[in-house]
Each structure stands twice: as C-alpha cells, then as structure tokens.
C-alpha cells in the first residue's frame, strides 16, 4: 500500500515452540518463546509503527487437529498484547496468534512468550510451524487488530517440523 524503507533483519534470534495437554481437563495449550538480539530489535524498531505476531500454525490438510478452533484463554508478557482472530480460517492451516501492537516497547535480550489454550481437537498429535510476522499500524495511533497490516513473514520450523505435542527450538 505504501513504499516502505528497509531496516534489515528484524526477526527473533530464536523461537521455541511448545504444546502439551493443559492442567485443565479437556484442554491443550500452545506456547512460543522468543528473543531478539539488540541488533535485530534495533532493526525491527526502525520500521514504521511496527507490530509483531508469532503465528502458531497447525497442519490440517489431513483434517486431524490437536487444538480446537476457539481459543479459551491467551496471554503474553509482551506489552500491548492482543489475540488475533483469524478472519478467513483456512481449512488446511489453522492459525493461533497472540501478538504485540508496539514493538517499540520490547527490550533486547529478554525472552518473551505468547500462550493460547483451546479445548481438545480430534487428534492426539499434529505438526506445526511458527510464522514470525512483521506488521504495521495504520494509522499509527490505532492498536486494534483492524489497524494492523501484515508486511513481511519469516517461517520457523518450515515443512511442519514442530511436533505437536512436543517442543523444539529454531535459531535464525
């Protein structure tokens, strides 16, 4: 929509994905942890009104899903966190997202997390990837998901290599 300056590599230095049964009966959780080096975060904060989403994407081409669609609970320790409601839920890839609308409030070297919990899906195992998405607030003062435009994405665990349930870490 608008021409954007390039500020360099903005994605987290590493992302850890984890999923397991919840302590609450009949529910399961997914969680990502991630950290930016000072160089990466400086680059990220150089972009115009930047936002960040670690999208937890599950494989559903086979119709088997570990998580149900609706999120029962979510949290993050990133400032200005939000739950992104999928607008057009792909039948083949389900997306669970807890992001931040204010990347400028993040600190380098700190490990942040995003967490969601759903009721059980129809399968005891699944596979996933994590899509680190850089977005932009338009207009700048608006923090609603309706004002967050996707710009660029970097994929971790490409090829659905994040086991569900299970845990794995990828450096980029």
């Amino acid at each position: 929509m608008t021409t954007e300056r390039s500020c360099g590599d903005w994605w987290p230095s590493w992302i850890n994905g984890r999923s397991n049964p919840s302590s609450l009966a009949g529910q399961r959780y997914g969680r990502t942890k991630f950290t930016w080096s000072s160089t990466r975060l400086s680059a990220f904060q150089c972009y115009t009104d930047p936002t960040f989403e670690p999208d937890f994407v599950t494989y559903n081409y086979d119709g088997k899903y570990y998580f149900s669609k609706s999120v029962q609970s979510w949290s993050t320790d990133m400032p200005n966190g939000y739950l992104d409601t999928p607008f057009a839920d792909s039948a083949d890839e389900r997306v669970y997202t807890v992001g931040t609308s204010r990347v400028t409030h993040l600190d380098p070297g700190r490990t942040y997390y995003s967490y969601f919990r759903t009721t059980n899906g129809n399968s005891g195992s699944d596979s996933a990837k994590v899509v680190a998405q850089r977005g932009r607030r338009i207009p700048s003062w608006c923090d609603s998901t309706w004002c967050i435009f996707a710009q660029e994405s970097v994929i971790y665990f490409n090829g659905w290599t994040l086991p569900v349930p299970g845990t794995s870490t990828m450096y980029r």
């Binding site: 607008f87 997306v95 998901t145 994929i155």
Partner: peptide, 23 residues
C-alpha cells in the same frame, strides 16, 4: 487490515518451501 492477513496466509500456502516473504 484483515485482507493483508489473508494475503499473508495465502502467500505462505502458495510458496510452502519459502521461508521469507512479504505482502
């Protein structure tokens, strides 16, 4: 805004082997 999110998902599905893209 939600059209940009759908564009991102569509792009990811059209290029499953790519690890970086923009919309």
């Amino acid at each position: 805004a939600n059209q940009s999110q759908i564009a991102s998902g569509t792009c990811s599905q059209k290029y499953p082997d790519e690890t970086r893209f923009s919309v």
